[in-house]
């Protein structure tokens, strides 16, 4: 039995009086794609930074590759790749210079740094922009470059903090594809995201965090099965009608959730719930039946939507 790649036990991070990470237990196995999900301020980045050995833990126990970040930080960092929430690229330098220099930081011999850079440019589909100044790249290209750069030391573990935030759908799909390939090559992925579809696409297993605590853990499918119904009926009523309609919907489906802009009805058969709604003489402006998603799990667990 090999020890998991990351082991966190009762991990705590405080900033002064404020507790950002409040006693979480996490294990990530080698080769896994693991996600931290949660709203703004949940403590995702704080956790990632502790794992990346750029933020000392306040209390608890943390091991990465079986090493202690407090005393062996540099040895751990040598073996991981980090894509931080905010890019740290050198915007005045060219795309390839960014890669070469990062290779130099890891003390790769110059020819080796250049060889890997060329490969990574290919991987990130940036070969034709190799000599462009980073400032001139689009947001999606910069993010791809950040990922490429984080791979220059051929890491065993890749930490990605909101890799696709702010990207358009197409750019996100390109990135997902790249990450999927890395996973196939055996790189362990740990990522944070606000996007449920991203987590469902990429993660084998995830934890939902809220206010520094883990509120649920499992595979995307198992979480949905455990916390949500098979389908969800989304109803929108005319201005201010949502709150008025909610009491009249009582009893339809298994559970209801009143949001500012719509009412959600959790039911295994969404169409049936809609028929029932019409039977009660309610006339929603729009009605949509969809499969339950992680978003619903999150809503149920925290009473809040993920992206405000």
């Amino acid at each position: 039995m090999s020890e998991p790649l990351i082991v966190a036990e009762q991990l705590i991070k405080r900033f002064g009086e404020f507790t950002a990470v409040d006693g979480i237990d996490v294990q990530v196995e080698k080769g896994e794609a693991f996600g931290f999900l949660g709203p703004n301020g949940a403590g995702k980045s704080s956790t990632m930074r502790m794992i990346a050995c750029v933020s000392p833990i306040t209390a608890g126990r943390l091991r990465v590759f079986g090493l202690d970040p407090a005393t062996q930080g540099a040895d751990i960092r040598r073996r991981i790749g980090v894509v931080p929430q905010l890019d740290t690229l050198d915007v005045e330098l060219s795309v390839q210079e960014n890669l070469w220099l990062y290779g130099r930081f890891f003390d790769l011999p110059r020819p080796e740094a250049k060889r890997r850079s060329a490969e990574l440019l290919e991987f990130a589909q940036l070969t034709d922009r190799a000599t462009s100044v980073v400032e001139s790249l689009s947001g999606g290209m910069k993010r791809r470059l950040s990922i490429a750069r984080s791979l220059i030391n051929e890491p065993e573990l890749l930490l990605l903090d909101e890799p696709t935030t702010g990207l358009d759908p197409q750019a996100r799909h390109v990135l997902w594809d790249r990450l999927y390939r890395l996973k196939q090559q055996g790189v362990t992925l740990v990522l944070t995201t606000h996007y449920m579809d991203e987590a469902e696409q990429l993660c084998d297993r995830l934890v939902v965090m809220d206010q520094g605590k883990i509120v649920a853990e499992g595979s995307p499918r198992s979480l949905i099965g455990q916390y949500a119904t098979r389908e969800v009926l989304e109803l929108r009523f005319a201005a201010d009608g949502n709150a008025a309609a909610a009491p009249q919907l009582e009893g339809i489906g298994e559970r209801q959730e009143l949001l500012p802009d719509r009412v959600l009805i959790y039911a295994d058969d969404g169409e049936h719930a809609l028929t029932e709604t019409h039977h009660r003489g309610l006339q929603p402006e729009s009605a949509l039946v969809r499969r339950a998603s992680l978003e619903d799990v999150f809503l149920l667990l925290t009473g809040r939507t993920l992206v405000d």
Partner: peptide
Amino acid sequence: WQRGYHGIAATSLE
């Protein structure tokens, strides 16, 4: 602004 030091701090340098 550019956060270059943060980039370096994430490598085996400190």
